[in-house]
């Protein structure tokens, strides 16, 4: 994020902005920085009034006085900060301060906005509110945004395109759907919340479909693999249905097993099932009670062919 924001120089490679390498001189870096704005991970407000904090980006760009006043007041209103202009910035609460930090970045109408975990240090309520306001502005003004986040659901909710960075390298990029359902390797799979990742061997191939042997059981999945290939089978816990008898639905995989543990997690229950290999499923608390799920109970775990993602073992 710091390299993208042209605050740090890359030790290798370059940063292209609109196709132009902007890392070559300080002058180019400054020009490029003035077309973007960043909300850094640890944002700090300058020790002056809210107005002075918000206006500084415009001042530095040499915007004339009359216009700046109008722009600042407009953005303060959008960020629900009307009446805060004269307040000393350091006396604001966390949520208010964060809104000022974002207003300060948005007021310059950047072509590119960098957000580094903009809501990381806020309570969930303030975070949700800020997200709502900021993204409505971003969508309206059509600003390109690069956001760093550890919050999977936030990423899924907001992003058109997701890149997974691991050890300083982009290991996968694509739409939210792609990244979350078709991770390229075990680490990405674990990272995006694929809780069931099991080793298997392709036992049979049948025109786009494969049968994978996992822990002595057979799982049908979609994939283009050769027989005998070692693979990883990934199933999201929320895609598994638990029942007491074999379901006669379109789902081709229905494995019987025994409940090995049940854990409450808010309104849902996580259930560990041993069906030759360990699996985790999710059910609502209500259905857990209705099914009488408890340790040792025999159940069927059913999942569709399309909800299984098979990765070639590396």
């Amino acid at each position: 994020m710091r390299i993208l924001g042209l605050l740090d120089k890359p030790s290798a490679g370059s940063v292209l902005f609109d196709g132009v390498d902007v890392t070559t001189s300080e002058k180019l870096r400054l020009q490029a920085r003035r077309r973007m704005a960043a909300v850094l991970q640890k944002p700090v407000l300058f020790n002056t009034s809210v107005y002075e904090n918000v206006v500084c980006g415009l001042k530095w760009r040499g915007t004339d006085g009359q216009k700046t006043k109008k722009e600042v007041n407009a953005i303060l209103e959008m960020m629900e900060l009307t009446g805060y202009a004269a307040r000393p910035a350091r006396t604001l609460s966390g949520g208010e301060a964060q809104r000022v930090v974002i207003a300060r970045a948005l007021v310059v109408r950047p072509e590119l906005l960098l957000l580094d975990e903009p809501a990381a240090n806020l309570d969930p309520l303030s975070a949700a509110k800020i997200e709502e306001v900021v993204w409505s502005i971003i969508r309206r003004e059509k600003i390109t945004v690069v956001m760093a986040t550890h919050d999977m659901s936030q990423g899924q909710r907001l992003a058109d395109r997701i890149c997974v960075l691991m050890d300083g390298e982009i290991v996968q990029s694509g739409s939210a759907r792609e990244v979350f359902t078709l991770p390229v390797n075990r680490r990405v799979a674990e990272f995006v919340g694929m809780e069931n990742i099991v080793d298997g061997v392709v036992a049979a191939v049948n025109g786009g479909m494969v049968v994978v042997e996992v822990g002595g059981r057979e799982i049908e999945a979609i994939g283009d693999f050769a027989a005998g290939e070692r693979v990883l089978v990934c199933i999201r816990p929320e895609d598994i249905t638990i029942s007491l008898s074999r379901l006669s639905s379109s789902a081709r995989n229905s494995l019987n097993g025994r409940v090995s543990w049940v854990a409450q997690d808010g309104p849902i229950c996580r259930v560990g099932i041993d069906c030759g290999f360990p699996m985790v499923a999710m059910v609502t608390r209500k259905s857990a009670v209705e099914l009488g799920l408890e340790r040792g109970k025999e159940v069927f775990a059913t999942f569709k062919v399309v909800s299984i993602h098979v990765i070639r073992h590396r």
Binding site: L30, R33, A37, L40, V44, C56, W60
Partner: peptide
């Protein structure tokens, strides 16, 4: 972080020093 914030908002080296 003050220096970083100023630069990320488009301040030149001189403007950053003033901040």
């Amino acid at each position: 972080t003050i220096t970083d914030s100023a630069r990320s908002l488009g301040a030149s080296t001189w403007q950053t020093s003033l901040v």
